[in-house]
Write a protein that binds this DNA or RNA. Structure first.
Length: 668
RNA sequence: UAACCUGUGGUGUAAUGGUAACACUCAAGAUUUUGAUUCUUGUAUUAUAGGUUCGAAUCCUAUCAGGUUAUCCA
């Protein structure tokens, strides 16, 4: 029910308006139209989420339509993968459809267009046509075949279909306007000859319709009410509408609803690439193990990495829908998966960088099976037993011989709690000749009520099982790897995006099944990879836990430089101007604070920069006031008065705003 | 330098002429047998300049910035 109070995005506004203007609700129909030439990635999820989400919201059908008009690139493998991914995300399509189902209909309409003089066969080379097309700043010119007779066009087009011509010799073009400022309107190609085997129609056709001719008409045939796509199709809209208006004239009796296209900004994720072509390159050049490599932004990659459908849908919901370019921070995706897994994943203990701890006052050979809560966020998750013994592993970085009071973990002479077990105290260390610590000798107490600051996870060495642990880092070291005109995105590949190690896990994990998800306590969320076998467990690290301790350590270099950057970014005067906008509305206490800040900033402002602001509109009293404050500082620092200054001040004294008058009088 | 689109905290999204809000990030604190979770608090925003209006993020004009468009791809 909280849905009702949620604000609408611009597409929902459009739909609401259409409904208000008389579109019956049962005419609402959407579609998701992938080309089966690659795997779906997180960017597609946005488009999927929008169209299928709208379907769910309005209880309207959503078609899954494969835009399969280019047999050279498309394969059944991709159709299967796309269906699997959409299903996995939890969406249900009304009909599974293919643009290739409409080839005959499209062909019939094309014949009609030719008869109406709206299309013609061109027989030039693609180079010649490109030349005639002009450029964005220069209009195109008509080619020599533009005015062929209807009979000739009809004859040629039918013979194109019959396979009488080699590929590339003729095309069918819409006859629109070679001078249109929108280049897509300069007689776009509708059909080309292609002798390729189509994954559905086989060798039935040797002419294939182009995207613009196919896509909109497929929407129309399916009676899609709102055809939603990403921003780069905006210029296509004019052509979409042109085709639509013509076929509508031919078929309005049977197909009464002309669809409308609307465009939204597609999703970009920081530190990743979204282009299918580029993702394919990563696969083909072996930089990743496949389309479902856990580092890939593909849906299959995210699935294997341990992302849940829930978390991805939540992410898309949070990202929103609008028309401006955007780059979403990966931290939002990480937040969504943590939020989901925090509620559902059972907690277990695993040590990834082990160091041996010997509990000297615990009897040799003794073992205890202690109770451990599976998930404190979920009471129904229950308890399990974990074995404890004299020798355990803890993480290397959980121990320091000496450390300050901010280090809550184990140090010599210090006490720490072992999760689900006892409290131990580090007595001394055993070192190898090279100085490396080999063992930490501790004593334990059974008084677990005692208050200690730190709690560590651990595993009993005798009982531990081993597993391969795959830890991932971002695939690219650059925030926007494919946005550099002068550099190939491959230059930004992070060589350390995969780190494989052996982990020591509590024995309950020997039962873990492929796909099962856990929280390795204090480390992160992990799932069992497909590569796991009965002999060898393999885990993927889905995402780490938030770690405010890790953040503290590199503070000195990291944070400061970041802060400096943001401070340097804006010149002092523009900061002052910003203050000016709200200055007159601030509560007094805050205003004084701001004023002091302005006075401080004004020291770095030159008169030449300030003077233009004397001309600020009369009604913008706030800006004039802060300029006055800044001016005062400049005068105090030795600036000579001139006519412009005097005029500015005397005009201010006559103002109706008291703050401005006060500042001006003060200076006067 | 043609046409079209877009400019709201660091990031993303609301507010549809009437108190600029929500989420993530970041920071501080409380709780905690995970330095997690949870809770509280905080920093920070309408690209610029004019105009219309009692009142502008919203409408108008200009400027600036970014993006898109020239495959027989989709």
């Amino acid at each position: 029910m909280s849905e009702e109070t949620k604000s609408l995005n611009f597409i929902e506004h459009i739909i609401e308006e259409d409904l208000a203007n008389g579109l019956p609700k049962d005419k609402l129909r959407f579609r998701f139209p992938p080309e089966p030439n690659g795997y779906l990635h997180i960017g597609h999820t946005k488009a999927i989420g929008i169209s299928f989400g709208l379907g769910e919201k309005y209880n309207a059908p959503v078609n899954l339509r494969f835009d399969d008009t280019n047999p050279a690139k498309e394969e059944q493998e991709y159709v299967d993968a796309i269906k699997r991914d959409i299903e996995w995300l939890g969406y249900k399509w009304e009909n599974e459809l293919y643009s290739s189902d409409y080839f005959q209909k499209l062909y019939d309409w094309a014949l009609q267009m030719i008869k109406d003089g709206k299309a013609y066969v061109d027989s030039q080379s693609s180079e010649a046509m490109a030349e005639q097309k002009g450029t964005p700043t220069q209009v195109g010119v008509a080619g020599p075949y533009r005015n062929r007779s209807v009979e000739e066009n009809l004859d040629l087009f039918q013979r194109m279909k019959a396979g009488e011509f080699p590929a590339g010799t003729h095309v069918l073009r819409a006859k629109i306007d070679m001078e249109d400022p929108n280049m897509l309107m300069r007689d776009p190609i509708m059909y080309r000859i292609l002798y390729a085997h189509h994954h559905r129609t086989g060798d039935e056709w040797c002419i294939y319709p182009m995207y613009d001719w196919t896509h909109g008409e497929s929407d129309y045939i399916e009676q899609i009410s709102h055809s939603l796509c990403s921003l780069e199709f905006k210029p296509h809209r004019k052509l979409y509408d042109w085709f639509k208006e013509h076929v509508y004239e031919y078929s309005k009796d049977k197909l009464p609803l002309p669809p409308k296209q609307h465009e939204f900004a597609r999703l970009n994720l920081s530190y990743t690439i979204m282009s299918k072509r580029k993702l394919l390159r990563l696969v083909e050049e072996g930089l990743v193990s496949g389309w479902d490599d856990p580092r890939m932004p593909t849906i299959s990659g995210l699935r294997r990495r341990g992302y849940t459908p829930n978390s991805i849908r939540k992410f898309i919901e949070k990202v929103g829908v609008a028309k401006r370019e955007n780059v979403i921070d990966v931290s939002l995706l990480e937040f969504c998966i943590r939020e989901d897994l925090n509620k559902t994943a059972n907690r277990v203990m695993a040590v990834l960088n082990p160091i041996k701890v010997v509990i000297t006052n615990y009897p040799e050979g003794k073992e205890e099976w202690l109770d451990a809560e599976n998930n404190q966020e979920d009471e129904s998750a229950g308890y399990r037993k974990v074995p404890f013994s004299r020798e355990i592993y803890i993480e290397k970085e959980d121990f320091k011989e000496e450390a300050g009071s901010k280090f809550f973990r184990l140090k010599l002479g210090g006490e720490v709690r072992l999760k689900n077990a006892y409290i131990i105290k580090a007595e001394h260390v055993v070192k190898a000749e090279n100085g490396d610590i080999e063992e930490i000798h501790c004593t334990y107490t059974e008084d677990t009520e005692k208050k200690v600051k730190g709690t560590l996870h651990w595993v009993s060495i005798k009982h531990a099982i081993t597993a391969e642990i795959r830890e991932y880092d971002r695939l690219f070291s650059d925030e926007a790897p494919d946005s550099h005109a002068d550099k190939d995105f491959m230059e930004f590949i992070n060589p350390n995006s995969l780190n494989i190690k052996t982990g020591y896990l509590e024995p309950s994990l020997s039962e873990a099944k492929v796909g099962e998800q856990f929280q390795f306590q204090r480390l992160g969320y992990f799932n069992v990879d497909n590569d796991s076998t009965a002999e060898k467990l393999v885990f993927n690290k889905t995402v780490g836990l938030r770690d405010s301790w890790a953040k503290q350590k590199p503070k000195s270099q990291n944070n400061q430089s970041q802060q400096n950057k943001s401070q340097q970014k804006r010149p002092p005067l523009s900061v002052i101007q910003q203050f000016g906008k709200k200055y007159t509305n601030l509560p007094e206490e805050k205003r004084l604070k701001v004023k002091a800040e302005i006075q401080d900033l004004a020291k770095d402002v030159s008169y030449d920069d300030l003077e233009p602001l004397f001309g600020t509109a009369t009604k913008k009293a706030g800006t004039r006031t802060v300029v006055m404050i800044a001016l005062k500082v400049l005068l105090k620092n030795g600036l000579e008065r001139n006519d412009a200054i005097n005029q500015f001040i005397s005009k201010a004294i006559e103002d109706k705003n008291e703050l401005l008058v006060a500042e001006a009088t003060d200076i006067f």
